[in-house]
Every structure is written in structure tokens, then in C-alpha cells.
Design a protein around this nucleic acid. Structure first.
Lengths: 222, 222
DNA sequence: CGGCCACGTGACCAATTCGTGACCTCAAGG
DNA sequence: CCTTGAGGTCACGAATTGGTCACGTGGCCG
């Protein structure tokens, strides 16, 4: 499991990193919200997010990460303000801790959150997804069908990648739109369908992307 | 909002009652698990449950209440054992507090739980429920009967999912309607029954959805 | 400049999916 | 038994929703 620890206090960050590494977690540290966003990628399996960040409001970071990645987030805060906590949960944090906290509790929560998150841990560290003879490499942005490379446009790849991050899971329209177009405005005409059609056509293999009526699309699993 | 406070310590119970009543909550007190179950009825909108009860184990009470009523439960415990907390959430508690707690925090959580009562998995962390050979995957929105996939429409799936989140619990009509149709307007003609009929027919297996006369529907448990 | 490519848009179509109201069934209570 | 009301069933028209097409725009490059 790859953890991203976002914490500006070096002492705290160091302590956390130590404890977590001893627990065999793979830890990456970020000191600012900006840095956190830069370091985020599909390999990160969970985020520990300190709300007291210097450059960006913690909630903002949470929102930005959530908008782009489907990753569990545990908020850590020195503030005991209740409104903050609630806001946190409302924004999509999966759990939160108030400093000072018991490290054992942290571990327990990480494991609890991890357990109740998607069982896609198999693909959590893996950036290559293969389905129905279609190989999707999220890192190098390459797609192959039966070892013959397929060239996809940017939007096409983004859509496919968004689906590939959760194989078999129906990704709702709005979510796809927000991930690919970086906007919450859903009024994107028939653009999504057109691109999906294009992907299907290029891949040749039908049913790799299956449409879930009334919801969105899903990457087929065998 | 009608609250049921289950707490054996009279001092604590008194304090809670006072604070909550000042907040315009309607409060009923119960000192034992037995009493709590006797006092439960449909008017209760939320339960505050102390785990350190004299006659019954708190978790047991939680389970019994959950089996019969679809109501949010906030657990209160003097034990700081983490396993207990996790167990609590897994059992269907919507939140929990550790004594001693800040009363303002209690209020905040009550309001938070009430507000979010609808959307997500209240029954725990599993996204796959299996009953009578019917497998319901909430994440991928797939339903199978004996491993043969069944295609449900959106409304059908939403209804089944709403039931599946509380297996064995009778979910009342209004609640189903509010969850599936996102409205509190109950005047939905015979639409609900029609969809339920459709689900039953598609699943083939009878009695997976059992109707609870005068209340609503429930997912059968074996 | 002119062609190519990626993308957005809106019209149009076919297929589902929903909602509705009439009518039927059945269990509980008098 | 009979009444009653909640729940079940059915069929059909209306509303959604996704797929496809054709076209327009703007960037990029020879």
C-alpha cells in the first residue's frame, strides 16, 4: 500500500513516516498542498491529509484530489473545531483524526479505511490494466489490443483511463465529465458519447466499455 | 426530531437529556437494552446508544434495533478500545463517540448523521450483499442470481440497493421513495410496487424482497 | 494558405424506461 | 362471510437516454 502523507510539520511528518514504514507501508511525503497535488498519481492508495497546510486550505486540497482520483482520504487536524470535521466528512474524507492522536489509532483507521475501500488494491499499485485483450498503461499512456498499439487522442485516453482505474465499476457520467473535462458543468452536449463511440471503434473489441444506462460507463471485467 | 437515549448512568443520561431538550430535540430515556427495545417505535428518529449497558451487550442492542428499524444509531462508549469502535461501525452504527465527549460535539454529530442519513452505506463497508443466491454488488451495480447476471434498470437497481444496505430490515415506503426518487413527495402512484414486481420477476427467486404490510419492503435474510 | 486533426454541438433516431390509472388479490378484522 | 385497504398486475403513452451523423471551429504545420 502506497501512502501519501501531506503534513507541513517536519517533526510530525517524520514520526508518521517512521511508524508507517515500520508497518510496511510505502510512504511519500508532501509538505504543501501544491506538492501533494504534484505527487498524486494512480499508484497512491491512500492520503493522510493535514488540514493546517501553509499554502492551501486543506479542504481545497481534499476537493482537488477527490476530483481527480478515487482514493481514500484521512484528514488530520489540530483544530478541534467541529464544523471543520463535519465539513471534512462532507467533502469526501473517509475518516478524520484530531491531533494529538494515538498512533495505534491511526494505524487502525488506516486499515479500517483501506479495508472498506474498493477491492481494487490489486490495481492500486499497478498502472497497467488488461481487459479482454486490451492493455491500458496509465503511466505511459499507451493502449494496445492484442499487442498492436492503438493511438488514442487525449480525451479518448482520459476517458478510458478514468474507467480503467476502477475496472468493472460503473463510473457515473458526471464523474467522468469532471475528471476528463476538469469541470463540474454537465452540459457537455453529446461529447462524451461521441468520444466513447470513437474509443469503441478504435479498439475494435466491442463491449470493452459497457454502458450502464442511467448511470454512465464501466470497463468490462471478464 | 425524536431521540432515544440509551444510557444506564443516570447522571449522564440526565445531562444529555437536558442539553438535547434545550436544543429542541424530543428525548426519550432508556436505562437498559430491554427498555430501549420496548421504547423503540417508528417515531424515533435517532438512537444514542451507550455500549456499557447492564443487561445486554451494546452491540447486541444495536443489532436488534437495526433488524427491526431503519434508524441511525450513534454509539457512545467509555471504552477507548479501537476494536470496539471499528466493530461498532461495522455493525451499522452511523457514528460513535468516546466518553468523555464534548457536548457540542455530540450535537454536531447528531446533526451530521441526520443530514447524511440517506446516501451511503450505513450497514457497513461491504459493497456486495448476497442473499438467497442473489448477489448484489453496490459498487459495480451488478446483480447476479446463481452467477447468471441480471440486468436491472436504474430505478430497479436503486430500490434493490436501498434494501440491500439494510438486509433484513424493513425499509419504509417513504424512505425508499425519498432515496430512489430523491423527493419527499409520496404521491408516486403505484410506481414503487410496479418496480418491485419487476425486480421480483427478473430475479426469478420469490421472496427475496418481502413485503412488510403497512411499512414497506425488506430484503429477506436466510 | 489549405489540409488535417481533435473536439464540441445539435439534430435525429431507436430503444428503453417510467409513470399512470384501471382493475385484481389477499390478509386482517369485524 | 363481508368489508376494507394495502399491495399486485397490466398495458400503453410519454419521457429519457444513449448512439450516430454531419457540420463548424480552431490549432498546428508544411
Amino acid at each position: 500500500m502506497h501512502l501519501l502523507v501531506v503534513e507541513d510539520d517536519h517533526h510530525v511528518a517524520g514520526a508518521l513516516t517512521g511508524v508507517l514504514q515500520r508497518r510496511h507501508f510505502d510512504v511519500t511525503r508532501a509538505a504543501t498542498g501544491r506538492e501533494a497535488l504534484d505527487l498524486m498519481d494512480d499508484s497512491v492508495g491512500m492520503v493522510l491529509l493535514d488540514l493546517g497546510l501553509p499554502d492551501m486550505e486543506g479542504f481545497e486540497v481534499c476537493g482537488l484530489i477527490r476530483r481527480r482520483f478515487d482514493v481514500p482520504i484521512i484528514m488530520i487536524t489540530a483544530r478541534s473545531e467541529l464544523t471543520a470535521k463535519i465539513h471534512g466528512l462532507g467533502l469526501g474524507a473517509d475518516d478524520y483524526l484530531v491531533k494529538p492522536f494515538d498512533l495505534r489509532e491511526l494505524i487502525a483507521r488506516i486499515e479500517a479505511v483501506g479495508r472498506r475501500a474498493r477491492p481494487v488494491t490489486a490495481t492500486g499499485t499497478d498502472t497497467v490494466i488488461t481487459v479482454h485483450g486490451v492493455r491500458i498503461d496509465l503511466a505511459s499512456r499507451k493502449v494496445c489490443v492484442e499487442d498492436t498499439p492503438i493511438s488514442l487522442t487525449r480525451k479518448e485516453f482520459e476517458i478510458l483511463a478514468a474507467l480503467a482505474r476502477h475496472p468493472g465499476v460503473a463510473v457515473r457520467r458526471e464523474r467522468l465529465i469532471s475528471e476528463v473535462w476538469q469541470t463540474d458543468w454537465a452540459g457537455i452536449g453529446r461529447s462524451l458519447e461521441v468520444h466513447v463511440a470513437s474509443i469503441r471503434h478504435k479498439l475494435g473489441v466491442p463491449d470493452v466499455i459497457e454502458t450502464v444506462r442511467g448511470v454512465g460507463y464501466a470497463l468490462a471485467v471478464e
